[in-house]
Structure formats: structure tokens, C-alpha cells
């Protein structure tokens, strides 16, 4: 498994994705027109895809980062443990992304 590069790639994606978060906060501080522009973007097909990708990148980077933290503490270096941590991070990242979007639609969909 070569998931270290995915950790780095998701980190890079999140780096530039932060612009979206900053744009959203600045729009909220600016006023209704600016905020409506952000909502029009995040509500569009491409916007939803980007926000979905951002969610996965964040959740994967989080889980993969916890894996690195386990290694930093000196655990999980056996071959089977490495495999389990790597697959665990991959599966947990996808599962958390799905969970967040299901909750988001259930809570926010009707508003």
C-alpha cells in the first residue's frame, strides 16, 4: 500500500480548498448578496462535487494522520499492523464522508 502519497495529496487539496472556506466566511461577513453567490456555487453540481471531494480529503487526511500519530508514538510497525492501519484509515475516511453527507442531507435538506 502506498497511502503516504495520498496523505500528501489530500493535504495539498485541503490547502487550496481552504480558499473555499475563507470565501464562505468572508461572504457571510459581507452580506446577503455575497452569501447568495457562495450558496449558488456550493448548490451547483460542480460545487457539490468540490465540497464532497473536500469532505473526503479532510476525513481521509484526518484518519491517515491518526495512523501517522500511532506510528509517531512507536506502535503499529508490524507488517499486519501497518496493513490494518492503512486499510482502516482508507475505509474510515470513506465511511465518515458518507456519514457526514447523509446527516447533512437529513438535517439541512429540508431547510
Amino acid at each position: 500500500m502506498a497511502l503516504s502519497i495520498v496523505h500528501r495529496a489530500t493535504g495539498l487539496a485541503l490547502y487550496f480548498g481552504t480558499l473555499l472556506l475563507a470565501w464562505w466566511l468572508i461572504a457571510a461577513a459581507s452580506g446577503p448578496t455575497a452569501y447568495a453567490n457562495v450558496q449558488a456555487f456550493t448548490g451547483s453540481a460542480i460545487g457539490k462535487l468540490i465540497v464532497f471531494g473536500y469532505t473526503w480529503a479532510l476525513m481521509h487526511h484526518l484518519c491517515s494522520g491518526i495512523r501517522h500519530f500511532v506510528w509517531d508514538l512507536g506502535y503499529g510497525f508490524k507488517a499486519n499492523e501497518r496493513e490494518a492501519l492503512t486499510w482502516g484509515a482508507l475505509v474510515a475516511g470513506i465511511a465518515l464522508t458518507m456519514l457526514i453527507w447523509i446527516i447533512a442531507y437529513a438535517v439541512g435538506g429540508g431547510r
Partner: peptide
Amino acid sequence: IVPVVVVVIMLIGRNHAGAA
């Protein structure tokens, strides 16, 4: 991360006044 995700979900679908 958990409180931040909760905040973002709280904001979904709200207009500017509600979000602000």
C-alpha cells in the same frame, strides 16, 4: 473536527441572516 462539522451542518440550507 466534531464541533466544526456540527457547525457546518447547522448552517446548511440557511439564508444569510440565519447563517450570520
